[in-house]
Write a protein that binds this DNA or RNA. Structure first.
Length: 594
RNA sequence: GGGGCGGUAGCUCAAUUGGUUAGAGUACCGGCCUGUCGAGCCGGAUGUUGCGGGUUCGAGUCCCGUCCGCCUCGCCA
């Protein structure tokens, strides 16, 4: 094999005259006739033009050059030539070209299903890109993403290694636990009928590492949750997982702020600024979300008390049921937002559980259209409360507190997008803190953890943990950037009695808690240090820095919405002998007989 | 589990009201061309219209079912 002496990305003008060998894929070929063929040779590092020129290239090499097609793999040896007055300004190597003297055609390509060209690859159906991932990943854009992802993990390892964190692996085959996401399960051969679970996160293990005296832990690890995916969510994803001992919330937030801001600065070239803290309540109240996008203003106001004074049935029913009425003033919205638009926003509100989206315009000192007749009686107070100005539009979120907030919060995002209120290229982050410990789940008829069952209540709220769980706040915290949750964590419970109380509130009997989490409760009994930590979503960090909303773009081998890997065709059929060994009998689906 | 969009040549798409032989660009194949750089020009080959059924003289088009992909609600401690 002709061994390469440099890559397709690093030859420059000053290398002119040198003899070099390049290896790579034929990105494109331009056959000018019998005496002149150009190819762009591509590898991970870049692209270099190779020219087969009858005046300088041996005849047999010339002939082979003419047969090259896109994505053939070759090695070429030749002399670097200055292109003088005719550089290709699109390429870093554009000032030179390699004049072919010797060629080895390593592998011809079969007829290509897709082309790895950034120019048109974004139009290719994702199904094809996933099936032929090895071709798709050749694209410069995908290579750039893989490299960025590597830079982020390298930066992370260095940052935390410099601060005494130990990278420690935790098991993939663990025991199924109640609470949380649906587990992927794996059968045990030695103990037929018993099952491992794949970890939803290394949560309990990293806490036990703290009990084990490891003090500072880091792992970049896969987490698996058998739940339906979304554009920004995949059943199999990666976390930057951290835990520390003998610290308090502020210590973690300070260190993680330093990590996040320096990561964004040094890898992303972006100034995150400082990361303000906002309580969960303020986030919900003012932005209608526990992950507020603070790149633009447009805040919500609570007008529940005012709404009670109206005769509007929609308001009254929500208020009578103990719910809320939220209002959002859109400056100048009366003209900018047509009926068609506000109808579309109503559909958004409905998907988040609201009955609709009452709307009113404020023009010439009067409320007009929509619910004008219902809110006119509270005109003065509403104008005052929302600081309304002529030409504004007001939208209302109505329902339970969470529905009213989130429905209007989602409309807020849609309006901002429509009106172009979100500045391009801006990154704004914040810490959301003071989460509630619990959320009441009507279906289950019990409290469920807002964060997870190991999250400690705020020290100042420990006394109301059992007496008033609804108002008990936790020491949880989320890092939110541009309206996306990129990380979250908490101070953990390190006292077995407190942990047992929380399990109790979650409806776990003492027996079941001991059965399912006994190893954690046990560990806490043998000298557990105070500890806490955080996990960042690596995929989300990469997505944000690369500017994509598609998580599959930042994963080398992602899965589809039904959990399939279209390239390797997972999941697949297991051999009956394998199943037999595991003691598994398939219940034949009725319709699968053909 | 629910809602929405899509599936036609290797790829990206078109195809009128249900009507002739399902077209175009690109990739591929052949030819021409000595400075291209998304090369250009000329020609060629390429189809289970996702799959199964139905309506009809006639279905890519209409109906039913089903599979796959994407977006989304629920779900994701």
């Amino acid at each position: 094999m002709l061994k390469r002496t440099c890559t397709c990305g690093d030859t420059r003008k000053e290398n002119a005259g040198e003899t070099t060998t390049l290896s790579g894929w034929v990105n494109t070929y331009r056959d000018q006739g019998k005496g002149l063929v150009f190819i762009d040779l591509r590898d991970r590092y870049g692209m270099t033009q190779v020219v087969f020129d009858a005046e300088d290239t041996p005849k047999e090499v010339m002939e082979l050059g003419g047969t090259l097609r896109r994505e053939d793999v070759i090695s070429v040896t030749g002399k670097i030539r200055d292109r003088d007055g005719k550089p290709n300004e699109k390429l870093p190597t554009g000032e030179i070209e390699l004049v072919a003297k010797e060629i080895e055609i390593i592998n011809r390509t079969a007829k290509l299903p897709i082309l790895p060209d950034d120019h048109d690859a974004d139009k290719i159906g994702e199904e094809h890109r996933l099936k032929y991932r090895y071709i798709d990943l050749r694209r410069p854009r995908m290579q750039k993403i893989l490299q960025l992802r590597h830079k982020i993990t390298q930066f992370t390892r260095n940052f935390f290694a410099d601060r005494e964190f130990l990278e420690i692996e935790t098991p993939l085959l663990i025991t199924p636990t109640p609470e949380g996401a649906r587990d992927f399960i794996v059968p045990s051969r030695h103990q037929a009928g018993q099952w491992y679970a794949l970890p939803q996160s290394p949560q309990i293990f990293k806490q036990i590492l703290m009990v084990a005296g490891c003090d500072k832990y880091l792992q970049i690890c896969k987490c698996l949750r058998d739940e339906d995916p979304r554009a920004d969510r995949q059943a199999e994803f990666t976390q930057i997982d951290l835990e520390m001992s003998f610290i308090e919330q502020d210590d973690i937030l300070a260190l993680m702020t330093e990590f996040a801001t320096s990561l964004y600065k040094e890898v992303g070239g972006v100034d995150l600024g400082n990361l303000p803290q906002m309580s969960w309540k303020d986030a919900m109240d003012n932005y209608g979300s526990d992950r507020p996008d603070i790149r633009f203003d447009l805040q919500l106001a609570d007008i529940t008390e005012l709404a009670k004074k109206t005769d509007f049935k929609v308001f009254n029913e929500a208020c009578d049921a103990g719910g809320s009425v939220k209002a959002m003033r859109v400056p100048g919205g009366a003209e900018k937002l047509s009926r068609k638009k506000t109808d579309a926003y109503a559909e958004i509100a409905k998907t988040y559980g609201a009955g609709g989206l009452p709307v009113v315009k404020y023009q010439d000192g009067e409320f007009v259209t929509g619910v004008a007749k219902f809110v006119t009686p509270i005109k003065e107070e509403l104008v005052e409360a929302l600081k309304l100005e002529d030409g504004d539009i007001v939208m209302f979120g109505v329902g339970t507190y969470r529905v009213a907030c989130t429905a209007l919060g989602e409309v807020r995002l849609a309006v901002a997008k429509e009106l172009g209120l979100i500045p391009e290229g801006m990154f704004r982050g914040l810490w959301v803190i003071d989460f509630p410990m619990f959320d009441w789940n009507e279906d289950a008829g019990r409290w469920v953890s807002e964060h997870h069952p190991f999250t400690a209540p705020l020290a100042t709220h420990l006394d109301i943990l059992e007496s008033d769980p609804a108002n008990c706040l936790s020491s949880g915290y989320d890092l939110v950037i541009n309206g996306a949750e990129v990380g979250g964590g908490s101070i953990r419970i390190h006292n077995p009695e407190v942990q047992a109380k929380v399990f109790g509130l979650l409806g776990l009997s003492q027996e079941k808690a001991e059965d399912k989490f006994g190893f954690l409760l046990n560990a806490l009994r043998f000298g557990a240090p105070p500890h806490g930590g955080i996990a960042f979503g690596l995929d989300r960090l990469v997505m944000m820095m690369i500017g994509t909303t598609n998580i599959r773009d930042v994963i080398a081998f992602p899965k589809t919405q039904t959990g399939a890997d279209l390239m390797c065709e997972a999941p697949g059929i297991a051999d009956p002998a394998q199943l037999d060994e595991l003691g598994i009998i398939m219940r034949q689906p009725a319709e699968s007989t053909e």
